[in-house]
């Protein structure tokens, strides 16, 4: 299909969708009084409910069931897929890496974001740095990976270095490494990309929370002689504690699911594999539905405690106030 007909297809689909919708709304509006309310429920709620059931409820059940099946999804294998995940020494690499990702990324992003939020709160022209640091959030993980691929570009030490990191290191007379092959540090080079993206998020949310601290609280503390570190640790941090937890867990959940960065940068080679990329590889490269499903279930189970912790924290926050 050429470009023009693709765009024509898109326009037709959108027009048909809204045309049918308006027609249905118009016709249903003519229905007699007694039928109107049940009809409204059906028409308004029906499509979304149907799509959610087909798109999420049934698949979640099927995937859970499939995680106890063999590669083709036809024979029951009991817990074999889970035994494979946790019992195969080769797999400890991606389990370990996933743990490193979800510990390092949220903590680092939140700390840097918090420091920036505090400093920006005291600056008069905060909008330009804020925009520029927040900007990576608009960029896709694929785009970010190519941007950082250029930073990590490695050439033979005899040649001129093209990558920024290698060039900077060479300035200090250190022989640059082939960063993405350098185990185990390459995982951290990938994590930096995620931190680069998430710091802006942490900064914007925390900055809003800091601005929301009532002025009298800060002033009272300052009258009592609290300054600098004391003001920060005894007043600011406790006041934004809830937001800090939300930011940490939100980034942790996003990190757990990140797959694009690893796939584009190393495709999980050189000891950089993570859970979500392994799930994709098992399901769509190895075509082992059982293992792919089991990995998806593990991902699901790993996300749940973070979510529960987050909700409990938020509830606590709300009950205090």
């Amino acid at each position: 299909m050429d470009n023009a007909s693709k765009l024509a297809l898109m326009a037709s689909v959108v027009l048909v969708f809204f045309g049918v919708l308006l027609l249905v709304l118009f016709l249903a509006g003519r229905a007699s009084g007694r039928w109107q309310t049940p009809l409204a429920r059906l028409i308004f709620l029906g499509p979304a409910a149907l799509l959610v059931i087909i798109g999420l409820v049934i698949p979640a059940i099927q995937t859970t069931y499939g995680s106890f099946q063999g590669p083709d999804g036809k024979k029951s294998v009991g817990l074999a897929n889970y035994e494979w995940i946790f019992g195969t020494p080769d797999n400890w690499v991606f389990l370990r890496n996933t743990a490193i990702w979800i510990i390092v990324t949220p903590i680092f992003s939140t700390v840097v974001g918090l420091v920036l939020a505090l400093l920006l709160d005291r600056m008069r022209r905060e909008s330009i740095p804020k925009s520029l640091i927040f900007m990576p959030m608009a960029i896709s993980f694929v785009g970010a990976s190519i941007i950082w691929g250029l930073v990590y570009e490695y050439r033979d030490p005899a040649e001129e270095q093209v990558g920024l990191l290698s060039a900077i290191v060479s300035l200090f007379n250190i022989t640059p490494e082939n960063w993405l092959l350098w185990q185990p540090w390459n995982t951290f080079f990938l994590i930096i990309i995620m931190i680069w993206i998430q710091v802006g998020f942490a900064m914007v949310v925390l900055s809003a929370a800091i601005k929301a601290i009532p002025m009298d609280v800060t002033e009272a503390a300052m009258l009592d002689g609290a300054t600098g570190w004391k003001l920060f640790s005894k007043v600011t941090v406790p006041m934004i504690r809830g937001t800090l937890v939300v930011v940490l867990t939100t980034i942790a959940i996003g990190t757990l699911k990140v797959f694009d960065i690893v796939r584009v940068m190393t495709n999980g080679n050189f000891g950089t594999q993570v859970l979500s990329n392994e799930m994709y590889a098992q399901a769509f490269v190895q075509f082992d539905k059982g293992r792919g499903s089991a990995l998806a279930v593990v991902l699901f189970i790993a996300v749940v405690p973070l979510i529960i912790y987050n909700i409990v924290q938020l509830r606590k926050e709300q009950s205090i106030r």
């Binding site: 049934i58 698949p59 979640a60």
Partner: peptide, 14 residues
């Protein structure tokens, strides 16, 4: 509650 379901769980069945 459905927001807990990660995308990954829906890919193969869909």
């Amino acid at each position: 509650a459905l927001q807990v379901v990660p995308l990954q769980m829906a890919l193969l069945p869909l």
